[in-house]
């Protein structure tokens, strides 16, 4: 065999091994080109992809290693955008970062968050997962006893046994358990003007975050207006129409039900106040009314409580609620 060739090959192998063991990137001769089929750099509207100020629970990343960016030898050529007919697309104006920030201010929806290829960015995706998990937690969570004690509320149950049944059987959530009925009969003032009831509904988190502020503010409002209040209590796993059972037992003029709303991805802690004039068995849904979206990012709970007082005043004046109230009001 050609001695010279053997020497040359050995030299190359040794060089490669040395390079590998030294942890260095192999030195390539200058005329050798590294081929990359796909761009490693993001393309598209970079302005849109700047990280935004995130609310609580934001996920941040920082790299743990220092990587040298591979040098690209072939420039990626961005194909001209074309329409289905192959004609170049007309120039569209790209919104500036200021405008995008303005759009983001106007909606809690996830707009102008950028993308990585055809997928959302990792950060956006994790935020989405986090919000989704918060929604699930809100449904399966429990209201802390400490909060109910602080507000002096006692607890009764609907006919639902557990969370699974609560979700599958809305009809059972609309009925008070027999023990519950007996308990409210025993502990509550009968025939009050206003009966306030709290329930976790589909979001325990909503009660945890907002009940105290709404309740105290509503109580103050009713005191100012000299409207008599019954004994407030808490219904575990209730639905809105459980107020009909309560109406039958306690015979109040107005029931205000503060109940956790079905959580969404924007907020998992939104509270609703359902109001009804003399709810009894057979009350139709059109007679119920609601003030929804009570939470930090919606109507402030303290302001909602203050507003509810005047709504109750109106219901009492017209002796009607819901559609009937709108009709009577003219």
């Amino acid at each position: 065999m050609n001695e010279e060739l053997i020497q040359q090959i050995t030299k190359m192998v040794v060089e490669k091994l040395e390079a590998a063991s030294g942890g260095q990137t192999s030195q390539q001769s200058s005329n050798e080109q590294k081929v990359q089929l796909f761009s490693q750099e993001p393309i598209g509207h970079l302005a849109a992809e700047r990280p935004q100020q995130s609310p609580s629970g934001a996920v941040t990343f920082h790299s743990t290693t220092n990587e040298a960016k591979p040098q690209r030898n072939i420039a990626t050529i961005k194909p001209k955008p074309t329409t289905a007919y192959g004609k170049p697309k007309a120039e569209t104006t790209t919104p500036t970062e200021d405008q995008l920030a303005e759009y983001r201010k106007k909606t809690p929806a996830r707009i102008a968050v950028g993308r990585a290829g055809s997928r959302p960015k990792t950060k956006t995706w994790l935020q989405f997962r986090l919000d989704h998990a918060a929604a699930v937690d809100a449904v399966y969570g429990e209201v802390p006893d400490e909060l109910l004690d602080r507000l002096g509320l006692f607890q009764v149950h609907s006919k639902v046994a557990d969370k699974e049944e609560y979700i599958r059987r809305p009809d059972l959530g609309r009925k008070l358990s027999d023990e519950g009925k007996a308990l409210i009969q025993e502990r509550c003032k009968t025939s009050p003007v206003v009966q306030i009831v709290a329930s976790n509904g589909l979001s325990a988190k909503a009660i945890e975050e907002n009940l105290e502020d709404v309740y105290l503010s509503l109580e103050q409002s009713l005191n100012n207006l000299n409207i008599d209040m019954g004994t407030t209590f808490y219904v575990d796993k209730g639905r809105v129409a459980v107020m009909d059972d309560i109406g039958e037992v306690l015979k109040p003029d107005v029931v205000v039900m503060l109940i956790g709303e079905r959580p969404g991805l924007v907020s998992a802690e939104s509270l609703s106040a359902y109001l009804c004039y003399q709810p009894r068995h057979g009350t139709i849904e059109a007679d119920r009314m609601v003030i929804s979206n009570i939470h930090k990012g919606g109507i402030p709970p303290v302001e909602a409580g203050a507003y509810l007082g005047t709504v109750i005043q109106k219901i009492l004046k017209y002796e009607a609620s819901g559609v009937a109230l709108v009709q009577k009001e003219g």
């Binding site: 503010s217 103050q220 402030p300 409580g305 203050a306």
Partner: peptide, 14 residues
């Protein structure tokens, strides 16, 4: 500036 006028007004009244 924020939506708090009613509760603040009522609190002052109280």
């Amino acid at each position: 500036q924020s939506d708090h006028a009613k509760v603040l007004g009522q609190t002052l009244a109280a």
